Simulated scan of single mutants.
Amino acid sequence: MPESLSIFIAAITSHNLALTYILGMCPMLGVSKNLDTAVGMGISVAFVVVVTSMVNWGIYNLILVPTGTEILNYVVFIVVIGASVQLLEMILEKFLPALYRAFGIFLPLITVNCVVLSISLFMTLRNYDFITTLVFALGSAIGWLIAIAIVAAIREKLKLTGDVPRGLQGPGIVMIILGIVALAFMGFGGMVSV
């Protein structure tokens, strides 16, 4: 299997950022009550992840590394992420106002979502080239989208049946669902690696 395809599949399955590395839990807990909103958040995070990974790869490899200022990568990455989220907010407010209102506080929180920053940090730690970074970012974004969609679908189903004990309602049941789904995704562990 070509390396890029292997990285793409691993980022979705066995190295899923939400299910393996437990990243991006704030929106996972807050926005996964409704499947449509969860999918919208997943797509929004995917947009930000892909855009920021491309921009951050260019800045890191074409500016920071040649000038010996790699130590500034955290600051630069966060500024790029903030600008991308601001762009996304403006687009959603203009063209999808209902989705914009449904996200509430969780849309600006994409800026501090560790999923977005982790893609850029993994890119630097693993010395990915541009194409590999793009493939990894897209796979990771799709994996996170799948995770939040699965959780939202299960939460909607549980809401219909009303079978969740009172002490587990809310974040408790979400973490249990995530644990069970993570166990299922572990089955892909021997197939591919990042």
Results as ranks from 00 to 15, higher is better:
residue 14 S to E: 11
residue 50 V to Y: 07
residue 121 L to Q: 11
residue 96 L to T: 14
residue 122 F to N: 09
residue 79 V to C: 10
residue 17 L to I: 11
residue 100 Y to T: 03
residue 73 N to S: 09
residue 28 M to I: 14
residue 83 A to D: 00
residue 86 Q to P: 01
residue 20 T to K: 12
residue 132 T to S: 01
residue 100 Y to A: 10
residue 43 I to F: 01
residue 137 A to H: 08
residue 44 S to A: 13
residue 114 C to T: 15
residue 108 P to Q: 02
residue 21 Y to M: 10
residue 27 P to A: 07
residue 26 C to M: 14
residue 24 G to C: 03
residue 32 S to Q: 03
residue 14 S to W: 09
residue 131 I to M: 14
residue 97 P to M: 02
residue 14 S to D: 12
residue 87 L to N: 01
residue 85 V to K: 07
residue 26 C to S: 08
residue 112 V to E: 03
residue 37 T to N: 06
residue 83 A to S: 01
residue 128 Y to C: 07
residue 47 F to W: 15
residue 134 L to I: 09
residue 41 M to A: 04
residue 136 F to E: 00
residue 17 L to T: 08
residue 44 S to P: 02
residue 73 N to C: 13
residue 75 V to K: 05
residue 38 A to H: 09
residue 95 F to G: 02
residue 92 L to T: 06
residue 95 F to Y: 11
residue 97 P to L: 00
residue 38 A to G: 05
residue 112 V to P: 06
residue 138 L to K: 05
residue 82 G to V: 10
residue 62 L to A: 12
residue 109 L to M: 01
residue 114 C to L: 11
residue 33 K to N: 14
residue 68 G to Q: 01
residue 131 I to L: 15
residue 25 M to L: 10
residue 124 T to R: 08
residue 123 M to V: 12
residue 65 V to R: 10
residue 72 L to E: 04
residue 96 L to E: 06
residue 64 L to V: 01
residue 105 I to E: 04
residue 125 L to N: 10
residue 47 F to D: 02
residue 34 N to H: 12
residue 63 I to T: 08
residue 23 L to A: 04
residue 34 N to C: 15
residue 100 Y to E: 07
residue 74 Y to I: 15
